[in-house]
Amino acid sequence: MNEERKEYWRWAESRWTNPEISDWQGRTITAGVDIGSTSTQAVILVDGELFAYSNMRTGSDSPESANHAMAWALEGTGMTLDDLQYTIGTGYGRVNVPFADKCITEITCHARGANRIYGPSVRTILDMGGQDCKAIHCDERGRVTSFMMNDKCAAGTGRGMEAIANLLGVDIGEIGDRSFQVEEEPKPVSSMCVVFAKAEVAALMRSGWSKEMVLAAYCRAMAIRVCKLLTRNKMEPDFAITGGIAKNKGVVKRIEEIMGVTALEPQGYDTQIAGALGAAIIAIDMLKKKRARGG
């Protein structure tokens, strides 16, 4: 039931339907839509169980991105928008989900989603997106106990990594592996600002460093940066990494090494849907409340 749309983009768009659920009529159906800066996800749950999801890139128009993502998630299921009993919008474009009953911050949704994806033991979640980086601490119910976010500075985000990848002419997907093809781990890039780091990297290349050494030095700098956010917020060994950079082992392994922890493995879920999944789970609570009020 997997479908992938190959495109020239950084990652493939995809959708999924649960082959084990066919009798969804008359059951509780909730949904979550997460509009991020680079990708949008729609998740549909039937009685709290994952029924279908889609993961697409965000267009220039948020409401349209939400409509597209949900339409694709619904595609081929026989379900329509009218069957969704409660929908929550989240992410930076959350106020622009036209069919949502409510919108909730991505931090709350993310924690709740991670609680499902990694199990209730997860306490610390690091989410590294295209334009931000978040450290979230939560309890066994997936309720946020503290959070810290940085979306001001591109260092420590996917965009910073892309800028370096572009400069070196290295495919973003190859960075992780190539960053380990060094004899010895070099010193991290010292400039924190992406603009200055680019100048520093150019100078390192001129002085004879290989692309692999530069990638190692930049991945390490990024890992150090992100670890500071983690330590400042609250770090526990039951730790998970989500978001686009979770796929970059060059950064993930270095974070694990610096923090002395191993990131939890997702329990059969695509980690990119964490926010939308959390939103759809919270929607179940909201639907119950609404019904209790007789709405």
Binding site: S60, Q131, K152, A154, R159, G160
Partner: peptide, 17 residues
Amino acid sequence: KAQCVVFVESEVISLIH
């Protein structure tokens, strides 16, 4: 909206569009 050069650059480009 943004302050970081990297983000402002894309903001400028989208404003041009």
